[in-house]
Amino acid sequence: MLFIVAIFVVITVAVAFVWFAPTITTPRIIFDVRPDRPAPFGYKMGWIAVRSIDTIAVVEALGLVGPVISNWDSGIGTVYDDQLGERRLFVSPPVDGWTFVVGLALPHPMSPAFIDKWTPMLDGLAARFKDVQYYFSYPLIDFYAWAKYTDGKLVRAFATSDAGTVLSRGKPTREEKALGLKLFELRGVRERRGDAGGEIILHPTEDHVMRLAAKWSIDPTTFGPASASQALGWIAEAPAHWRPERLRKSA
């Protein structure tokens, strides 16, 4: 009798394992590797534009983790996904000589209360590539940023949020001025006066970020089948040291 019960127990455990196995194994994410043409991005997104056709060199320069081949459709879909895009980036095939690193996992300028992860990332990239540009557009928190490096040197960097100017380095470029942005901390409508007595000016919007990208390199919201031939890029995870860290207060 005990022998029969033991057999039933073994069978029950075996069946249970087979039944629950799909739920206890780690899911494997498979990205589409069929070459396709560029897909647009830019709104509610961050990206780096690097003047290079060597995509794997860009992956290596940034220290991205576990790169896997992916086409445009899977890559852009991943970085816009709330879960998949939290730690992943898409490194695109070249478009007109530019490689794009796309994703909200990119570091961005933050308040002095946080360790600066943004500057070292861009400085390191600019040391290896002639032209490096950074853009971030996220209207949900009224955050907009851009930066331009040429020949390894910072030309201009600016970031603003709903709390005001986060960062401003270098003089506003001719292209920025052409957009009508004086980039003061006061915001609003031209030719009105605020309580502080200074001119209230137009605050940056997503449209300004895209228009500036078009002047400095390429506006990625215009990408489509005619932008480049079919090709493949890379999906990779952002390195752990990019994660935001607060500065520790000294005793």
Rank of each mutant, 00 (worst) to 15 (best):
L2C: 00
L2R: 10
V5T: 05
F8I: 14
V9R: 03
V10T: 14
I11L: 15
T12I: 12
A16E: 06
A16Q: 10
F17Y: 13
F17C: 04
P27C: 11
R28K: 15
I30K: 06
P35Q: 03
R37C: 00
A39G: 01
A39T: 09
K44I: 09
K44Y: 12
K44S: 09
M45L: 11
M45R: 06
G46M: 02
V50W: 04
D54G: 03
T55D: 13
E60D: 14
E60L: 03
A61P: 05
A61K: 05
L62G: 10
L64M: 15
G66T: 15
G66P: 00
N71Y: 07
S74D: 11
I76A: 03
V79D: 10
Y80V: 04
D81S: 09
D82H: 07
R87F: 08
R87M: 08
R88D: 01
V91R: 08
V95W: 08
L104D: 09
H108E: 06
H108P: 00
P109A: 14
P112G: 03
F114A: 03
K117N: 11
K117W: 00
D123E: 15
D123L: 11
A127H: 07
K130S: 11
P139Q: 11
L140C: 01
D142L: 10
D142M: 07
D142G: 10
Y144D: 04
K148V: 08
Y149Q: 07
T150R: 15
V155F: 01
A157H: 08
A157E: 13
S161I: 09
D162S: 14
T165F: 02
V166Y: 00
K171V: 12
K171S: 14
E175A: 04
E176T: 14
A178I: 02
L179G: 02
L179H: 04
L181F: 05
L181H: 01
L181I: 03
E185C: 07
E185T: 13
D195Q: 05
I200L: 15
I201S: 12
L202V: 15
E206K: 04
F223Q: 04
A226L: 06
A226W: 02
A231H: 00
G233I: 02
G233R: 08
W234K: 05
I235Y: 09
A236Y: 10
A236C: 10
A236P: 10
A240T: 07
A240K: 09
A240F: 04
H241S: 11
H241K: 12
P244E: 06
E245H: 06
E245F: 09
R248A: 13
K249R: 15
A251C: 02
